[in-house]
Amino acid sequence: METSAEPDKLRSRFLDAGMTVLARDGYSGFKQAAVCAEAGVTTGAFYHSFRNWKAFESELIGHWRVEATDRLVESARNVADPHERIRALISIALGLPHATERAIRTWAANDPEVHAALADVENARRSAIAEMGVELFGEATADRLASTAMLLLTGFENSTQPSLDDFKWAMDTFTAAALTMTGADQTSE
């Protein structure tokens, strides 16, 4: 007898497989056969879980937003110390599924719905960064710094030769300069 948790587990397997295929094969390799093979199940199981490929794509983009933005932003909001919160945001930025996001950016260039979802995610991230920086930088500066942080992220994800070490250095250097510039730097004891 099938429990209500089993279809959800199978759907989750497909969504995780979709993220993996996007990361590994890019948008050009994002095909139903590849997703089914990655999930280790048949196309019949796919159609048992999703009405069609478009429904899967929509759910996958929603899944990506929850996992790579909403859940992470909420965890950063729970960090009480504003300096630690900024460090948490940098850690989140470094840990994003960059290869998947690179593929989603390519996909967004060809699909207006994905483009709108990507714009919503970028706006949600920028707004969250600004909101979490207000305590240290004030509203206007936090907003500008959030926009700059997003430019660093999107530049990294669009780079033909992305280096996580270079991205980390850029984020750390940018943050240190912002903290020093605004007098919000925290000296070590």
Rank of each mutant, 00 (worst) to 15 (best):
D8V: 12
K9E: 11
L10F: 03
S12K: 09
R13L: 14
R13M: 07
R13C: 11
L15I: 09
A17N: 06
A17D: 01
M19R: 11
T20Q: 12
T20Y: 11
V21E: 04
V21P: 05
L22H: 02
L22G: 06
L22V: 06
A23V: 02
A23C: 14
R24W: 09
R24A: 00
D25L: 08
D25H: 13
G26A: 06
G26L: 01
S28P: 04
S28I: 01
G29H: 07
K31W: 01
K31T: 14
Q32A: 07
A33I: 08
C36F: 09
E38C: 14
E38W: 01
E38L: 05
A39S: 01
G40V: 11
V41E: 08
G44C: 01
A45M: 15
A45V: 10
A45I: 06
H48K: 07
S49Q: 10
R51F: 11
W53E: 08
K54G: 10
K54V: 08
K54N: 10
K54P: 09
A55R: 13
F56V: 03
E57Q: 15
E57R: 13
E57C: 14
I61M: 15
G62M: 03
H63P: 11
W64N: 04
W64P: 00
W64A: 10
W64E: 12
R65M: 09
V66I: 13
R71I: 02
R71Y: 05
L72S: 04
V73T: 14
V73E: 00
E74Y: 06
S75F: 05
S75W: 03
A76C: 14
R77G: 15
N78K: 15
V79A: 07
A80C: 08
A80Y: 06
D81K: 09
P82F: 06
H83T: 04
H83L: 12
H83C: 03
E84W: 06
E84C: 07
R85A: 07
R85K: 09
I86R: 14
I86Q: 10
I86G: 00
I86S: 03
A88P: 02
A88K: 09
L89V: 08
L89W: 15
I90D: 05
I90P: 00
S91R: 12
A93C: 12
A93L: 15
A93P: 06
G95M: 03
G95L: 08
G95V: 05
L96E: 01
P97N: 07
P97W: 01
P97H: 11
H98Y: 07
H98M: 02
T100I: 04
R102Q: 14
R102H: 05
A103H: 04
A103E: 05
A103P: 02
R105Q: 11
R105L: 12
R105F: 10
T106A: 13
T106R: 08
A108L: 00
A109E: 10
N110W: 02
N110I: 03
D111R: 02
E113Y: 12
V114T: 13
V114A: 05
V114W: 04
L118G: 00
A119G: 03
A119Y: 05
A119I: 02
D120A: 02
